[in-house]
Amino acid sequence: MNAFLALALNGFREARRNRITMLIAGFALLALLMSTLLADVSVASIERVLVDMGLAGMSLMLVVLAIFLSATQLGKEIERRTIFMVVSKPVSRATFILGRMAGNMITLGVLLLAMTAIFWIELAVMHCPMRSQYLAAIGTLYVELLVLSSIGFAMSSFAGSIVSAMVTAGIYIAGHLSGDIYRLGERAQNALVTGVAKAAYYFLPQLDRLDYKPHATHLLSVSGSDVALAVAYAFGYSGIMLALAVLFFSRRDFK
């Protein structure tokens, strides 16, 4: 087994044995199951409630988990000095970062699959079909988690865990508002505000492009080319973030 795979599988094993990860995962699965109860007390259709609650629950829990894992992992390794016995092995720092990132993505992927399975079962029990819009929303959620994780790693490659988690959470919120920020810049009379808003738009990840939950809720048609473009953009953004993470981390001293 090569070092990258060993690190990735170890990351997954760590998440499995981490109480916080398991607690968040358990809570997410429970919340997903509870959405069927809400269907009885809601005026909306059962399918609408299941989709709203299901996708929002998945998104919220997995985003929290992605930020927690990516922003705290490197800091924890350095603080606890577990990193000494890994980085001193014949493993490049790039392999270490990418292996750790892959471990996180395996963990998030397994949880997303488990949640999707429960969501599907719920829909089936309520005689609702699994529509392509739902799958598009779930698929792009995973890509969104990739972007967030790469930001978390880029931040934690030079900053502490708390700062990294706060900045990553802030970028997540701002990333969903990036379109609004651009429009604000266009409408502004001040050139400086316009410039800052445009700079923020290009710097922030355009996470709203990866958000297909409204399409799932309102059953809007999903364009394959739009999804492909958004995914390609997300991969590019993640690649840049990971390159920065490797660059910062390679120059870092572990005292």
Partner: peptide, 28 residues
């Protein structure tokens, strides 16, 4: 090179055997 740091802190969620196996995998 084999390295033993001062006050070593292995991954505490692993068993001793898993940790040494990981060490072998990382050492190639």
């Amino acid at each position: 090179v084999g390295y033993l740091p001062e006050n070593p802190m292995p991954y505490d969620y692993l068993t001793g055997r898993e940790f040494v196996t990981l060490g072998a995998q990382l050492a190639g």
